[in-house]
């Protein structure tokens, strides 16, 4: 996979999520299930690395990029994390005009809820994968 394609896939995940970890289901779908660019184990390791360092939680995408494409992949991951943040400026301008519209607010709330529910689905898969990996290692030792 080219670095640009990796950036596009990671950007798709970060730009459609509303929290640091919210991009996880899309990343798993695109990079683990569809492209086979990383494994479930590497995705879990990326989350672990991201949560072990100070700074934004969403920066775990940098580790995902590294596992998928080395240093260039990490740079693609960083750019994918940075790009959506620029949407804050037009949103800041538009917010007072539109956010009081109940249906707009309701749609945004529904997306945040869906993001949380999808995270729960990811948690179940990660827990299953982690438990199997741990059981294999304990049996092997």
């Amino acid at each position: 996979m080219s670095t640009f394609a990796l950036y596009v896939l990671l950007l798709k995940a970060t730009a459609t999520s509303f929290a640091g970890m919210g991009s996880l289901p899309q990343i798993r779908h695109d990079l683990v299930v569809t492209a086979h660019a990383i494994t479930d184990e590497q995705l879990s390791q990326a989350v672990l690395v991201g949560r072990s360092t100070p700074g934004p939680v969403g920066a775990y995408v940098v580790a995902v990029g590294y596992f998928a494409g080395g240093v260039e992949g990490a740079i693609a991951g960083l750019l994918a994390v940075m790009t959506p943040a620029f949407a804050a400026v037009p949103l800041l301008v538009l917010m007072q005009r539109w956010l009081h519209v109940p249906r707009v607010r309701a749609a945004v709330d529904a997306v945040v809820m869906a993001s949380a529910a999808l995270l729960v689905v990811s948690v179940v898969r990660m827990a299953s994968d982690g438990a199997q990996q741990f059981a294999r290692l304990v049996g092997w030792m």
């Binding site: 509303f18 970890m21 672990l48 949380a116 529910a117 995270l119 827990a127 982690g130 990996q133 030792m141």
Partner: peptide, 24 residues
Amino acid sequence: VRVIIAVGVLAATGLVASSAWHLM
């Protein structure tokens, strides 16, 4: 190292669950 990582991954699962809880 693999054992430590496996334990860490299970802990990371808990952290993701915590993120989901904060959102919901």
